[in-house]
Design a binder for these strands. Structure first.
Length: 267
DNA sequence: ATGTCAGAAATCTTCTGA
């Protein structure tokens, strides 16, 4: 069994204790992070290695964005990906070679949030988000074949199903759940006929959230969340799916990230 | 419109982005 986690950690340097907690409690083989918010030069390698991740692929600079792949198994072919020559620290991939399983490629992706106004003709940031997704879809189609063993993880900043937000009607006008977002995510999904692992395991009508705003207290009581974080697998790995869960209790670790980790288990 | 975080750059606080 192989456990793979995707987590928007919202600053790895502020969350080292919680990362160790994740490693101790769930023993993931691979952890894909977003919003590490640290330059490669300042990455806390020692603490992360101490949590059990001997192998690390990192891509970050300045104090924004930043992605990483942490692994107990060897990593190779590490690539930091940029779209249109713009260095943004939003996408890294690496080949993972477990001891007793076939190698696979892991991607850690951080899609732009897209700002506030839900109209791409007036909100350049929203237009950039949609372009980012389409560029990524083109890249993934070119990079991989349908038979490749690939895991795409990340904060995709889109909740595609009505049950992925706490109020579908209200959120349909909020960036992340607009028809523009959902159509773009579907184009991304089709780039390799990706399979949304969480929705293979949990019925599509059941509410599932991975993010709760910092601006609300008692998030468990209110449960006003969104499912923004995803783990997708290529079609060849569909039969390997053995489980999926959102590690909701992590949202109560102190101090918490505003995102909870998503963990999938593959045979 | 509001709430809270995190980081940067410049201070003893404001800004940007989320």
């Amino acid at each position: 069994m192989l456990r793979i986690v995707s987590w928007n950690i919202n600053s790895i340097r502020k969350r080292l204790y919680q990362l160790a907690e994740l490693a101790d409690e769930y023993a993931p083989d691979v952890v894909c992070l977003q919003e590490t918010k640290v330059s490669d030069d300042d990455f806390p390698h020692q603490a992360v290695a101490g949590a059990g991740f001997a192998h690390r692929a990192i891509y970050g600079f300045g104090g924004r964005n930043g992605v990483a792949i942490l692994s107990r198994h060897p990593l190779s072919d590490v690539v930091a990906h940029d779209r249109r020559g713009k260095r943004d620290g939003r996408h890294i991939s690496a080949r993972v070679t477990p001891k007793n399983a076939e190698p696979f490629v892991a991607h850690s992706l951080y899609v732009p949030a897209g700002g506030d106004v839900p109209d791409p003709t007036v909100n350049a940031r929203f237009a950039d988000k949609l372009t980012f997704i389409d560029d990524t879809a083109d890249f993934l189609s070119a990079e991989h074949g349908f038979r490749d063993r690939v895991v795409l993880t990340g904060d995709l900043n889109i909740a595609p199903l009505p049950s992925d937000v706490w109020n579908h009607k209200l959120m349909s006008r909020r960036i992340g759940h607009t028809p523009h977002d959902i159509a773009a995510m579907e184009r991304l999904r089709r780039s390799l006929n990706w399979i949304d692992v969480v929705r293979e395991v949990i019925p599509p009508d059941d509410p599932v959230f991975t993010w709760w705003s910092y601006r609300q207290t008692e998030f468990l009581v209110d449960s006003k969340g969104w499912r923004l974080d995803h783990v997708w697998v290529s079609p060849g790995l569909k039969d390997a799916i053995a489980g999926a869960e959102v590690l909701v209790s992590a949202r109560n670790w102190r101090p918490p990230s505003d995102h909870a980790p998503v963990m999938v288990t593959l045979r």
